[in-house]
Simulated assay, not measured.
Amino acid sequence: MRAAALLNGVITATDVPEPPELGPDQVLVAVHSCGICGSDLSLWKDAQTFVDVSIAGQNTLSVFDPTRPVVPGHEFAGTVVGVGTDVEGFGLGDRVAGIGVATDVETGEMTIIGYSNKYPGAFAERVVVDSGFLRLLPSGLSFDAAALAEPLHVGESHVQQSGFRSGEAALVVGAGPIGLGVVIALAQRGCESLVVVEPSPTRRRIAAGFGATTVAAPMAGGPVAAVPGDTGGSSLVVYECSGRQGALDELIRTLPIGSRIQVVASPFTPEVFVPVIAQWRQIVVNFGSGPVEDPYGVTLGRLARGEIDTTELITGRVSIEEVGSAFESLLDPEEHFKIVVHPQGGPGE
């Protein structure tokens, strides 16, 4: 089958083997739409560091051999073209999307498709995924829009984990697709003071359209300088979505005493901060711990009900042959917000 494969920092459209045989609880999906994720860009820039950090963090879901080809892509939507013997709730022809997890039938180990030499990701014509991570698409929801559920649900998940409460002020640092997911989740909760700090004018405009009450470019004094002084003494919840080196230390040193930081995006390199400063200033830092209640389903429902206008979010659509050039173009945040790959070549309807 055709796929866009990564090897030695180069993405090439090529022929790759079909996915492994289906396990009893797995589904074969013909991919119609797959978004290019920021983590795909991290993988492309430095696959070895990506794997080294995964190993150090004991994240076996994204460990593979970077000296061999890998097909990225996990923000997928498509049509069921094969079902395992024990699969319930899905049949041939069903329109689906979900979280791209596959359990290796031979080893029993789980992997994220796109970060595996064995289980190709969704920049390929077909993928194998565990049925437990799939959802049927609501009627009328396009494949392209459904593919946005995966990145946007990350924001919903982190807002749930942060314990955001009505009346609190929120500061979102970075307004890429993940940061926008946070903005959407906060706006849906009626956040009345929702501040976004983002260097890209285009992304600031999009964030304002999705409910940010204040948008600003980075400025002297750190992101907190953009927070209005009339928040009424409300506690401040900060969502670090930039992944910028040094961002965490800057926030710890400058936020109001008692603020909470939800780390949504993180660099793959060491981060230096002084723990006692955070302790003295009573700063709570959460790297993604806490209960969640179906953030993917919540996000998919919002998309299906039209509560998330996707017209400005998908700024490019490419074939497998064009994936390499699409990665290059995503280095400029003013050129694109989200590019969707169409492995079957047709529209993502």
Rank of each mutant, 00 (worst) to 15 (best):
G258P: 15
G9S: 12
I206C: 04
A149G: 11
A47P: 11
T254F: 03
L148E: 00
A170G: 12
V10K: 15
I99G: 07
V71N: 07
A169Y: 11
G114F: 02
L251I: 00
P333W: 06
V154L: 05
L6T: 06
A187N: 14
H153Y: 03
R2I: 10
G98K: 00
I314T: 05
P66D: 09
I314Y: 14
F123M: 15
G222M: 09
A225S: 15
G163W: 02
G155W: 08
F133Q: 08
G163E: 14
S319E: 12
V127K: 11
A278P: 09
D144T: 11
I339S: 05
D65N: 08
G290E: 09
E271T: 06
E109A: 07
G209T: 04
E250K: 12
L194R: 07
L251F: 00
V80A: 12
R260I: 03
T311W: 13
L236C: 04
A207V: 01
L303C: 06
G73Y: 13
Q344N: 09
T111R: 13
G181H: 01
V195F: 05
G324R: 08
L186H: 04
P223T: 04
E293M: 11
G89E: 06
P343L: 01
P120C: 01
P295K: 09
E322R: 02
Q188H: 15
